[in-house]
Amino acid sequence: MTDAAMPKPVSQNRAIWQQFRSHKGAVFGLIVLGLLILFVLIGPLVWVPEKLKVAEAIRLKNQGPSLRFPLGTDQLGRDMLSRMMLAGRISLAVGLVAMLIAIVFGTLIGVVAGYYRRFEGPLMRLTDMFLALPLIPLLLVLVMLFRDRIASVIGPELGAFALIVFAIGITSWMATARIVRGEVLTLKEREYVLAARSIGARPRRIILRHILPNVVSPVMVAATLGVAEAIITESVLSFLGLGFPPDFPTWGRLLFDGLQYMQVYPERVIWPGLAISLTVLSVNYIGDGLRDALDPRIRGR
C-alpha cells in the first residue's frame, strides 16, 4: 500500500464533529438549545423589568403583549418575559443536575457490577427492582412527604430544588447502570486490560485509566437523553402541583399557573409549554446525532 492510497488522517475529535455536523437534526438541536441557553443566561442581564409599585402592578395585571411587556403580564402584574427567563434557568439547572446525579450513580453501580463478579447479582437485582417501581407515583409521594421537612431545614427554594433533583436523579440511573455494566463486561476481557493487570495495576487504576475512558461514549448519549427526561419529569411534578413554589418557578410551574387562565389567556400556557417542548426536542436530536457520531462503526461512512 502506497502513501497516496491512504486516506488523510483526521483526529478523532474532528471526525466526530464532522459526523455530528452531517446530522441535520442534531445541528438544528444544537442551535436551538444554544439560543435557549443564551435566552435564559444572558436574557435577564439585558431585559431588566421595571420595578412596579403594588398598586401599579395590580392595574397592569393580565396585560397582553406590548412593547413594555413583550409577553404580557400575569395575574399579579409580573412581567412574563423575565419570569420565563428565570424559570428557564431553574428548569435547565434541574435537568442538568438530576442527570449528573443519575449518571454518576448509574456509572458507579454499572462499573462495580460489571467489574466485580461478587456484586453483580445483588446490584443487578437492585436495578431490576428500581425498574419495576412505579416512578411517577413514587416521585409524587416522595415530594409530598419530604417537601415540608426539607424546606424547614434549608429553606423552601433550595429545599424544593434539592429534593426534586435528588428524587429524579435517584429514580433514573437504571438505564445508565445497565449500559455501563454491559460495556465493562466486554472491556474487562480485552487484552490491554489483561496487560495492565499483568504488570500489577490495581483494580482502581484499571477502572479509572483503562475502562472508564472507553465507556464515555454510551454514557454521553445516555446523559444527553437523561437531561430531556429530567426536564419532562420535573415539569410533570410541577404540572401536578407538587413541584416548585410559585415564586421560584420553572417552566412546568408557569404552565401549571397558566392552566387556570387557559381559556382567556392561552399564551400563558403556550409559552412555557413551547419552551419545554423545544428544549426536549433539541436535546433529543442532539442525543441522536451524538449516538451516530460517537459510534465508530457508523462514523466515516
Binding site: G25, A228, I232, S235, V236, F239, L255, L259, M262, V269, I270, G273, L274, I276, S277, V280, L281, N284, Y285
Partner: peptide
Amino acid sequence: MIGFSVPTFFSGTL
C-alpha cells in the same frame, strides 16, 4: 421525534 418530545400535558393543553 415531536411525539417523544412534546409532553402530554402540553399537547393536551394545546
